[in-house]
């Protein structure tokens, strides 16, 4: 372990995934270092969502290896893995209750300050805390889902098409949000087929063939 690169983060090597009868991914390599925004670029249907899900073990890869700081992700308790590596789905589902309920889910001792910090980090006003989560717009939900992942104190964040449902202004805000999270040391991976967004906000690119 001597001299381990502090920026190591997540690494997938030669990963394969089969869903039902279909070989959806095969021979995929990917690196998600800390403190950078990695763009996972590919046309739709290429398997970006599948790969991100495999990285947090919502789906089990059946070939290759996936490591977090050099350790196989299967050696972690999956619940711990999913707190260290936050995943925000393309159209994230809100849990019943308020935005605060969503952010506090599973965290009994989350302080009000930590909750406000997470809202701010996701470019949400603290007044959002009391809003009913299922009354929010698509863009607001995306940010609540991001804030909800942030309350877990993740080291890496995986975002699936975060700008898919957003206009240009909202997409720019997401870009700025990711930038500032990244400046705090988080490693970020954005799966997208939005070239404009990638050109503006991504530090490094990975391509899915």
């Amino acid at each position: 372990m001597a001299g381990r690169d502090e920026a190591e983060g997540m690494r997938a090597r030669d990963v394969g995934v089969t869903l039902g009868e279909r070989r959806v991914l095969g021979g995929v390599d990917l690196r998600i270092p800390r403190a950078q925004v990695t763009g996972l670029l590919a046309p739709s249907g290429a398997g970006k969502s599948t790969l991100l899900r495999a990285l947090v073990r919502l789906i089990e890869a059946d070939a290759g290896s996936i490591t977090l700081d050099g350790e196989d992700i299967r050696s972690f308790d999956a619940r711990v893995l999913r707190r260290r590596v936050g995943f925000v789905a393309q159209t994230p589902a809100m849990l019943p209750g308020s935005v605060a309920d969503n952010l506090r889910h599973g965290l009994d001792d989350l302080t009000d300050d930590a909750l406000t910090d997470a809202l701010h980090a996701a470019s949400l006003d603290e007044a959002f805390a009391e809003r009913e989560a299922d009354e929010l717009s698509g863009g607001e939900r995306a940010r609540v889902a991001l804030a909800r992942a942030l309350t877990r104190g993740p080291e890496l964040l995986l975002l699936d098409e975060p700008t898919a449902a957003l206009d240009e202004g909202a997409a720019k805000r997401i870009g700025e949000t990711l930038r500032s999270l990244c400046d705090r040391g988080l490693g970020i991976c954005v799966a997208t087929h939005d070239r404009h967004f990638a050109d503006a906000w991504v530090d490094r690119r990975e391509h899915l063939q």
């Binding site: 619940r79 711990v80 925000v88 789905a89 589902a93 849990l95 889902a145």
Partner: peptide, 22 residues
């Protein structure tokens, strides 16, 4: 219908049993 919610709970660190419970 609630697949999205169930997945969201898993992603927030719930055990599978807890995610399915509601």
């Amino acid at each position: 219908d609630e697949a999205g919610e169930i997945e969201a709970r898993l992603c927030l660190g719930d055990a599978a049993r807890a995610a399915l419970q509601p």
